[in-house]
Design a protein around this nucleic acid. Structure first.
Lengths: 216, 216
DNA sequence: TATATTTTTTAGGTTTGCCTAAACTTTAAT
DNA sequence: ATTAAAGTTTAGGCAAACCTAAAAAATATA
């Protein structure tokens, strides 16, 4: 399987969630930053290989074999992201591009050993679940803080805004990966929230609560 | 720079030691398992890019810029080999193929962080020196045990024969990476050697001494 | 419903890196 | 010195993955 085939499968897997009846060549090519004509070509090839189901003008969906292949690439991507963030000094926003390259390395032993070395992590640094060797994947239980109700708790797993001012703010407030937040209450008029972290209470603006992800 | 260009530069660098006046397309293509015509093509391209010096029928040599590029790839290869052997459970003979893939990952930060994570190693698991960021590389001081004289000492850095029977033999004799050997004497008639390891003396056949590498 | 717009596919082209076969140099041997 | 052998280059092709432009199909609008 070529790098390009792997990238298409992975993209179709991702886009299928929003387009369950079929991912169009338009959507796919936009996501991959290529042209629709290129997507058509590749989809035909993947169809001939039995990895996807394709009907002209109807978009594409993964067959089981295609989904398994996609999940193997996703597993590799997320394990490498975990390695970069946990073992090397990469920050959240730096890991993706390098993992895009590393995910294509072909070696079953490598990925088994890496998994072991990392302590068999269940989630990557963004809070996304890591599929197992067979391609089983846990449901994502990731929400924005803004989606929680008073009394709910969540573990901080990532952010949506990587501007240095926002990251600095989080740092000042001692909010980091793994911090446990509990919603104390919500102000009706501006949707700001009071949250408890490490036995301290602090107020987060609506903007802030929309940019922080937690695993529930 | 493409994977293929990197592989050609690395190969030319390696082959230049044995062919200092120029690496022929024949030698190069044999080493890379391609055809001479393909090597000619690639060499022309590298020449146009100013990375090598090429005269038809006279073979190819690296220019300084080409040597720097080659050494960057070699640096990555050797750091990854060190990672696989020291951090993951890869054996000597398994690391090469995976490192051949990993060496092409493009990220300066990745390789700097990896170097730091590994503790700035000077040699890879085969005992070969790891070039620094600028492309400076230490002279290789690697010899077969058979090349040593009585009184010489060396640190075991690798083997030439990865048959399980040989590796088992080394294991039984407690000879491993990092073991320090001292030559006690050499039998004239069969070139077998008595060596001291960890205050024990043991006899190695000529065959064995030719298959063990040491750094002196 | 007929037409206009958007989306998708087809057709033909490009680049990279490989190939084979034929032509050409160089080197070796008589 | 000539010829034979070996090595190298050129010429023409192929597959992968991309592209643009034109044709065809699907969808939206009047």
């Amino acid at each position: 399987m070529t790098f390009s085939e792997e990238n298409y499968l992975k993209s179709i897997y991702t886009l299928q969630k929003e387009h369950p009846k079929g991912v169009s060549t338009n959507v796919l090519s936009k996501y991959l930053d290529t042209k629709p004509a290129s997507a058509t070509e590749m989809i035909k090839k993947l169809d001939e290989k039995g990895l996807v189901h394709y009907q002209p003008y109807q978009g594409v969906i993964l067959k089981d074999s295609g989904a398994v292949s996609a999940l193997k690439v996703i597993r590799k991507h997320r394990l490498w992201e975990t390695f970069l963030a946990n073992k090397l000094d990469f920050s959240w926003d730096e890991i993706h591009d390098v993992a895009e390259q590393l995910e294509h390395i072909k070696s079953d032993k490598l990925i088994r050993e890496l998994d072991k070395f990392l302590g068999y992590p269940k989630h990557d640094p963004h809070g996304d679940p890591i599929p197992d060797e067979a391609g089983n994947i846990a449901k994502l239980e990731k929400k924005r803080v803004s989606q929680l109700q008073p009394g709910d708790t969540g573990t901080c797993i990532g952010v949506n805004d990587t501007s240095s001012s926002f990251l600095q703010f989080l740092d000042q407030q001692n909010i980091r990966l793994g911090s446990v937040l509990e919603i104390v209450n919500i102000q009706e008029f501006d949707k700001s929230m009071t949250v408890r972290i490490d036995d301290r209470e602090l107020l987060l603006s609506q903007i802030a609560t929309e940019h922080i992800y937690v695993r529930i």
